[in-house]
Simulated assay, not measured.
Amino acid sequence: MHLDRNRYSVPTEYAHHIVSLRCYPTYISLVADGIEIARHPRSFDRYQTFYDWRHYIDLVERKPGALRNGAPFLTMPEPMLRLQRHLLKQTGGDRVMVQVLAATPVHGLEAVLVAVELALESGRPSGDHVLNILARLKSQSAHSGEVVRTAITLKVEPLADVYRYEQLRVTRNEEDGHVE
């Protein structure tokens, strides 16, 4: 999107589509079909390009090599840049980094940044490590404030008694001790 000789990114699925531009004193808003699809700080300088790296996640999922030299990805938060530098030293690291980036729309940027920081602290970060941490964080938050309430109350708490299962066994012949 162009405004005052500046360029602003939009999500790749809206490239070459008609979008509405709404200008405000401190930011610009890009709207498609009545939904805000992008927001950038407004600049009154000229001939600048403003990227949001999250707009290009779909593109790098199809073409992971674009991650290595893509200008939009230079604007990622510092922990993500450190993880990228570490992963790109390995064979297939660009594909692994794309998996981490693809987790951002699903889990949210803050959760991904926490997972990346924890993986980096371990000393040997990997994409699987980051995704594993995300899954653990998600399961902890899902169970953390969960209190199960029911109208049914127990009069007698169940006892852990494994000997009661012996009563369920039926033998064919008591003498040979074989169980059916």
Rank of each mutant, 00 (worst) to 15 (best):
L3T: 04
R7M: 04
Y8N: 07
S9V: 00
S9W: 00
V10M: 03
T12K: 05
T12L: 03
E13Y: 05
E13F: 03
H16E: 04
H16S: 09
H17E: 15
I18E: 14
V19Y: 01
S20A: 13
L21H: 00
L21S: 00
C23L: 08
C23S: 10
Y24G: 03
T26C: 06
Y27A: 12
I28V: 14
I28P: 00
S29Y: 00
L30C: 01
L30V: 01
I35G: 02
E36W: 00
I37P: 00
I37V: 12
I37L: 00
A38I: 01
A38K: 02
A38S: 11
A38D: 06
R39Q: 11
R39C: 12
H40T: 07
H40R: 03
S43K: 00
S43M: 05
F44M: 08
F44K: 05
D45V: 11
D45T: 11
Y47C: 04
Q48R: 15
Q48T: 09
F50D: 00
D52I: 00
D52E: 03
D52H: 03
R54Q: 14
R54P: 08
Y56G: 01
D58Y: 05
V60L: 08
V60S: 06
E61I: 12
R62P: 02
L67E: 00
L67Q: 02
R68V: 15
N69W: 14
A71I: 13
P72C: 01
L74T: 14
L74N: 14
T75M: 14
T75A: 15
E78R: 13
E78V: 08
M80S: 09
M80A: 14
L81M: 04
L81Y: 04
L83C: 11
L83T: 11
R85D: 15
H86W: 15
T91R: 15
G93V: 13
R95D: 12
V96W: 08
M97R: 07
V100A: 10
T104C: 14
P105T: 14
H107Y: 15
G108N: 06
L109P: 05
L109V: 12
E110N: 12
E110Y: 04
L113Q: 11
V114N: 06
V114M: 12
A115K: 02
E117L: 09
E117H: 13
L120A: 09
E121R: 15
S122Y: 06
G123V: 05
R124F: 15
R124H: 15
P125G: 08
S126H: 06
G127F: 09
G127I: 07
D128G: 15
D128S: 12
H129Q: 10
L131N: 04
I133P: 10
L134C: 09
L134Y: 10
A135R: 14
R136F: 11
L137H: 05
L137F: 02
K138A: 10
S139Y: 05
S139F: 06
S139Q: 07
S144L: 09
E146V: 12
V148D: 07
R149P: 02
A151R: 04
I152V: 10
T153M: 07
T153C: 06
L154W: 06
K155W: 02
V156C: 04
P158S: 11
L159Q: 07
A160S: 10
V162R: 06
V162I: 13
V162N: 04
V162K: 07
Y163L: 12
Y165A: 01
E166W: 09
E166Y: 12
R169V: 14
V170A: 02
E174C: 05
E175C: 07
G177K: 11
